[in-house]
Simulated scan of single mutants.
Amino acid sequence: MITVKNAESHLKDKIGEDTDDVKKVWETFKDFCKEPVEGEEDKEILFQCGVYDFTGKELFHLDFVRQFTVYEEDEYSRMEHLHCEFLFKPTDEISKLEIGEWSMDYEDIDDFFNHIENLQEFKIPLNLRPIKTEIYQEEV
């Protein structure tokens, strides 16, 4: 079974080397989100995008996130985010896009995924080539 500790390596193995193919990574990410993770009570998935200067330079960030709430001995310990993040040079078309949508607002994970796939914030950057892709897990 997947654990929070090995979730990042598991997802990286599933995606393989072709991390610049946003469509492929999205499909793999969706499958990964349906896999159970030890200790996970609820699926907490975030889709977000926008222009930010987190890197010191303004770039468009397209980010698929799976959030894990970690408990130790039945006590809340922390949250961790596993990101599939794509960075793009901001263009007029994508610079206007900004959104953050959580799966918890939907009855079913597939309803959430269908909603995301119909958003312009998803559709427009989907066919662009990122300048950088990062898959990483962090404590938040």
Score class of each variant (00 low, 15 high):
Glu72Asn: 12
Glu73Tyr: 12
Glu73Asp: 15
Tyr76Ile: 03
Tyr76Gly: 08
Tyr76Phe: 15
Ser77Asn: 13
Ser77Val: 06
Ser77Ile: 01
Ser77Asp: 14
Ser77Ala: 12
Arg78His: 15
Arg78Gln: 14
Met79Asn: 15
Met79Ser: 15
His81Gln: 13
His81Thr: 08
Leu82Trp: 06
Leu82Ala: 10
Leu82Asn: 11
His83Ala: 00
His83Phe: 05
His83Tyr: 13
Cys84Ile: 03
Cys84His: 05
Cys84Gln: 06
Cys84Phe: 01
Glu85Ala: 11
Glu85Phe: 01
Phe86Pro: 04
Lys89Ser: 13
Lys89Pro: 11
Pro90Trp: 07
Pro90Glu: 09
Pro90Met: 10
Pro90Lys: 10
Thr91Ile: 06
Asp92Met: 07
Asp92Asn: 14
Glu93Asp: 15
Ile94Asn: 14
Lys96Phe: 02
Glu98Ile: 00
Glu98Val: 03
Glu98Met: 05
Ile99His: 09
Ile99Gln: 10
Ile99Leu: 07
Gly100Phe: 00
Trp102Pro: 08
Trp102Ser: 08
Trp102Ala: 04
Met104Ala: 13
Met104Ile: 12
Asp105Gln: 09
Asp105His: 08
Asp105Tyr: 06
Tyr106Cys: 02
Tyr106His: 10
Tyr106Ser: 02
Tyr106Val: 00
Asp111Gly: 07
Phe112Val: 03
Phe112Arg: 05
Asn114Trp: 03
Asn114Gly: 10
Ile116Cys: 00
Glu117Asp: 09
Asn118Gln: 11
Leu119Glu: 13
Gln120Thr: 12
Glu121His: 13
Glu121Pro: 07
Glu121Gln: 13
Phe122His: 07
Phe122Cys: 02
Lys123Val: 02
Lys123Phe: 02
Lys123Cys: 02
Ile124Thr: 15
Ile124Asn: 10
Pro125Tyr: 01
Pro125Lys: 04
Leu126Pro: 09
Leu128Asp: 11
Leu128Asn: 12
Leu128Ser: 12
Arg129Met: 06
Arg129Phe: 05
Pro130Gly: 00
Pro130Ser: 02
Ile131Tyr: 03
